[in-house]
């Protein structure tokens, strides 16, 4: 079984971002970039399926600038076999990314595509579902457990009320939630080995899909600031303030 894992390079989750003063976006100059944490979980799951003998090949793909190479290398160091970088300096939207990924799926014919449920920058939570629609495949989003069962896949999903299990026809699209696994750190020998693994560089234009951005970003602003309040000394004072000052009891 062949698995494709799309990975995205994003601002590291520990970075507190700043909005640009001219409100055109977020200032990404000199900030630490990392693999989107949900994509790490996706790579880890694919590697575990390979270690279990279920998967035979893991291909990672990233759509983005030349630096997205580093993100692909990280996935290769975790255990993926080869990478594809679809180069573009445009900031594509989820539907555009999904169209590019569809073209990659058609070229590579994977049995399973595992994506993150959301990228922690755009917070869109769209790409996997859109890719699934474009391919006419089934989708198992927000997965916390996977089990291959012949030509079907059982997926446990994190939903608002608890957990839901579905059985999907393969090929399928999976998106990862936090509890699916705990991603490994790549070891130094594996980081060295990853340097020799192949990354195929493509230009976005080679795929012949119309992925041009369609939305207009009017502005990006700072959220309303919340001011720190007061410290109370005792629980009694807290209850008194909640009752008589805030009026919420």
């Amino acid at each position: 079984m062949k698995i494709l894992v799309p990975v995205k390079r994003v601002v590291d989750y520990n970075v507190k971002i700043r909005v640009k003063p001219d409100q055109t976006g977020v200032d990404l100059a000199n900030v630490k970039m990392s693999m989107n944490p949900f994509c790490e979980i996706a790579v880890e799951e694919a590697v575990r399926l390979q270690e279990a003998g279920t998967a035979t090949e893991i291909i990672v793909v990233s759509v983005g600038p030349a630096q997205a190479q580093e993100t692909i290398r990280t996935a290769l160091a975790m255990g993926a076999d080869r990478g594809i970088l679809v180069k573009t300096d445009d900031e594509l939207e989820p539907l555009g990314i999904a169209k590019v990924l569809k073209a990659v799926v058609e070229a590579e014919s994977p049995d399973l595509v595992i994506l993150g449920k959301q990228a922690i920058d755009g917070d869109n939570n769209q790409t996997g579902q859109m890719l699934s629609a474009l391919l006419g495949w089934s989708q198992g989003t927000f997965a916390s457990e996977l089990g291959i069962d012949g030509d079907k896949i059982n997926v446990t999903r994190e939903i608002d009320g608890g957990l839901q299990s579905v059985k999907l026809a393969m090929p399928a699209i999976i998106t990862t939630d936090l509890r699916l696994n705990e991603p490994r750190y790549a070891s130094l020998p594996n980081i060295m080995k990853a340097k020799k693994k192949p990354i195929d560089e493509k230009e976005l234009a080679e795929y012949g899909v119309d992925a041009a951005p369609r939305l207009e970003i009017v502005k990006v602003a700072e959220p309303a600031e919340r001011e720190a309040g007061v410290k109370v000394e005792t629980v009694g004072e807290l209850v008194d303030k909640l009752k008589n000052e805030a009026g919420v009891l």
């Binding site: 601002v11 507190k16 971002i17 909005v19 977020v26 922690i120 920058d121 755009g122 917070d123 369609r214 939305l215 207009e216 970003i217 009017v218 502005k219 990006v220 602003a221 700072e222 959220p223």
Partner: peptide, 12 residues
């Protein structure tokens, strides 16, 4: 966006 650290105004 960005965990609520920025508010985007988007037009379709």
């Amino acid at each position: 966006i960005y965990a609520g650290n920025a508010i985007q105004t988007v037009k379709v």
